[in-house]
Design a protein around this nucleic acid. Structure first.
Lengths: 184, 184, 184, 184
DNA sequence: AATGAATGAGGGTTCATTCAT
DNA sequence: GATGAATGAACCCTCATTCAT
């Protein structure tokens, strides 16, 4: 029968994904297929085969990390306190980046369609919040919105690089959001 | 005389450096010794020998890019219009990063003493400007200065990632500097 | 079961070891990883991976050659005809060296813990035989024992260099053992 | 004129030779052309050109070391106290080997015609001494002479390997020469 | 379907030799 | 003729992928 083995395949996919995800948080680990496989308790071949290549595995792992953040972004985009929502969202995004700050680096030079798509959704969520903030008169309207979202998105990455803790993230957010306020 | 052949050595060192520097601006190129050597029109051995290793070559290339920026930073740190100086400096720093946005990534995991030293000088220059800005009442005093400098430094990196052009840099600076103003 | 593929690994490890061992007997061969791999019918990566480096492979190869000799030495050290035992042992040791006379040279400058340990055991065995020979009045007592063992050990190496056949070994042993007899 | 530059060539040949010779006594030095050149105060090209290749340079260096030893051998071969002469000669040979025990190893795999020829002469000298010793009844006659000379020649190398000092050499000689005495 | 050993291209580096200066 | 920088083949090793078991 093929059903039970299919179940195994699903389980192994998840094991590989979990291992890769865990390793993304360890900045000084090599992140080779063999290391991932060992952490997953699988063979190297299984790990590659489960995703069709290392690129796809890492894409899936980073996407898996990003997905709940994006979901949260969609949720917060519906808030009627857009600036507060933006701060909350960016705080969570940055905390995620800080916790897995090897994620971005390990994706370098790889095809990562899932992650790319999620990043776009993330930008959309930010866009909605900014737009709502503008309509509420809480966010400055003198700058092009697409540039603002890009800046905000990339800034999250910046914090990740410095291995920043919560207090640093908070300072950054204070500066960023004060800068986004309408100029008096 | 011992100068003549040395002249060639200097020229080729520069060729290798130029090639590496040029490649730092191409984010999707592999940046192997052989690629650098081919671009420089030299043999692979020559490139390694000229700098004593790939690490040292990349360090030198990035440092070469960073050096004039840092020099400019020292100059601007003496300005008596600190906020304007800060904006000018950050604009130049970010333009540099944007032009060579593979620089930081390619240095990952390498020993890069020159670049590290320059980065420290860069932070010092920013610190001076912020401090002067505070004394002039133009920069907020409610946040720890070392966190501000880190944030600012990392932000420059953020812009680099997005391959941003001048207008994007300008928007970022506007937001950042407005956020750094004393809260009313 | 996990044994089946492991069986191949063991077989190939042995293939690499055999190839290296065979090449140790060819004084004018380069003994690079690739040469060993080709002789073993394996890829270069496999050979390195199987032992964790060229050093370890050569150490293992030489140790593999030395091990039975040392075992025989321990056996003969228990003999109650110490001089006869010494001659037998040295004969076998030299025959081994003669058969693989590139062994020592190829280990030069390498970390070879196994081989080093075996050499020490070898010296100990000789020491025991000489000591027994002295107590039996068959070996001269006028010379320091540690010097004798060194000399004997190194002599075996000497014979190896000349690619000597059995009759040469025999002559050397006659001279050496006559020289070790108590002076009348 | 070509005469003065010829003089320079001769001088540089000697400088290269001296440098190589000196380095042969340092077992843990790399002995690359560049190292030799630096020690000689010459350029790498000059060192290679002076001898037509690294092999020839090392051959010449080792031969230069061996030559006086061989000369001394010829001298001592004329002695009418052959056994005493043999001991003296072997002592000097071994002291030479001990002082330059990197010599042999660095010649490995190289064409070294000069050194090879000298080694043959050295063997001849030993042969003469042994033959004279036999006629004087001081050296055993029951063993083939060519084997004895080989053994003796190779033994000198053995001592070199162990980095032996004078006392070790002396012990070795005592054993060896006692072994060469006619069996009673 | 999973395994994990084998593969082999590609990485940085070394070094005897060559050749423009 | 001397120089020493450039060369490029060869070295050992790593690792994503493949494939016999």
């Amino acid at each position: 029968m093929s059903t039970p083995s299919r179940a195994d395949a699903v389980r192994n996919r998840q094991l590989a994904l979990d291992a890769a995800t865990a390793l993304l948080a360890e900045p000084d680990t090599a992140l080779t297929v063999e290391v991932i496989a060992r952490k997953a308790g699988l063979g190297a071949g299984t790990v590659v085969r489960a995703f069709g290549g290392k690129d796809a595995l890492l894409d899936a792992a980073v996407a898996g990390l990003l997905r709940p953040v994006v979901a949260r972004g969609r949720e917060l985009a519906a808030s009627n306190e857009p600036v507060r929502a933006l701060r909350t969202f960016l705080g969570e995004l940055m905390a995620f980046q800080a916790a897995h700050h090897a994620a971005g680096d390990n994706l370098r030079g790889l095809a990562a369609p899932e992650t790319t798509a999620l990043r776009a959704e993330l930008v959309t969520a930010v866009e909605i919040m900014i737009d709502a903030g503008r309509r509420a008169g809480q966010v400055r309207g003198d700058l092009p919105i697409d540039v603002l979202t890009t800046i905000i998105g990339e800034s999250a990455y910046a914090v990740a690089r410095s291995g920043s803790g919560p207090e640093r993230i908070d300072v950054f957010l204070t500066v960023l959001l004060d800068g986004l306020r309408p100029s008096t």
